[in-house]
Amino acid sequence: MSAFRSGCVSLSKWRNRPLLHFLLFLIFATTLVCADRLPIQFNTFLEKMNQQFGPTRVVVARNWQTMLVQSQNKTEQQKILIVNDFFARNLRYRTDIQLWQQNDYWATPLETLGKGLGDCEDYAIAKYISLRALGIADSKLRLIYVKAQIGGPNSTQTQAHMVLGYFVTPNAQPLILDSLITKVLPAAKRTDLSPVFSFNSQGLWANNSTQSVANPTARLSRWRNIIEQTKLEGVMW
Results as ranks from 00 to 15, higher is better:
Glu76Lys: 01
Gln77Phe: 14
Gln77His: 13
Gln77Met: 15
Gln77Ala: 15
Gln78Thr: 10
Gln78Cys: 07
Gln78Gly: 04
Gln78Ile: 05
Gln78Asn: 12
Lys79Ala: 08
Lys79Gly: 07
Ile80Gly: 01
Leu81Trp: 01
Leu81Asn: 03
Leu81Gly: 01
Leu81Cys: 01
Ile82His: 03
Ile82Cys: 01
Ile82Tyr: 10
Ile82Met: 13
Ile82Gln: 10
Val83Cys: 04
Val83Asn: 03
Val83Tyr: 00
Val83Pro: 00
Val83Arg: 02
Val83Ser: 02
Val83Met: 07
Asn84Ile: 10
Asn84Tyr: 11
Asn84His: 12
Asp85Arg: 15
Asp85Glu: 14
Asp85Gln: 12
Phe86Lys: 12
Phe87Tyr: 13
Phe87Arg: 01
Phe87Gln: 02
Phe87Asp: 00
Ala88Thr: 01
Ala88Phe: 07
Ala88Met: 08
Arg89His: 13
Arg89Lys: 11
Arg89Ser: 06
Asn90Pro: 06
Asn90Ala: 08
Asn90Lys: 09
Leu91Tyr: 11
Leu91Phe: 14
Leu91Asp: 09
Arg92Met: 11
Arg92Thr: 15
Arg92Leu: 04
Tyr93Arg: 05
Tyr93Thr: 11
Tyr93Pro: 03
Tyr93Met: 06
Arg94Asp: 02
Arg94Leu: 07
Arg94His: 14
Thr95Ile: 15
Thr95Asp: 15
Asp96Met: 09
Asp96Cys: 07
Asp96Arg: 09
Ile97Ala: 11
Ile97Asn: 05
Ile97Met: 13
Ile97Tyr: 03
Gln98Met: 10
Gln98Ser: 08
Leu99Lys: 03
Trp100Gly: 00
Trp100Ile: 05
Trp100Tyr: 10
Trp100Cys: 05
Trp100Ala: 11
Gln101Gly: 04
Gln101Arg: 14
Gln101Pro: 03
Gln101Leu: 06
Gln101Ile: 13
Gln101Ala: 11
Gln102Thr: 15
Gln102Phe: 13
Gln102Ser: 10
Gln102Lys: 15
Gln102Cys: 14
Asn103Thr: 12
Asn103Trp: 02
Asn103Met: 07
Asp104Trp: 03
Asp104Ser: 12
Asp104Gln: 11
Asp104Gly: 09
Asp104Lys: 13
Asp104Asn: 13
Tyr105Thr: 05
Tyr105Leu: 06
Trp106Gly: 02
Trp106Thr: 05
Ala107Val: 13
Ala107Phe: 13
Ala107Trp: 04
Ala107Gln: 07
Thr108Ser: 12
Thr108Trp: 07
Thr108Gly: 08
Thr108Glu: 01
Thr108Cys: 06
Pro109Cys: 15
Pro109Ser: 05
Pro109Asn: 04
Pro109Tyr: 04
Leu110Ala: 07
Leu110Phe: 14
Leu110Glu: 00
Leu110Pro: 01
Leu110Asn: 00
Leu110Cys: 12
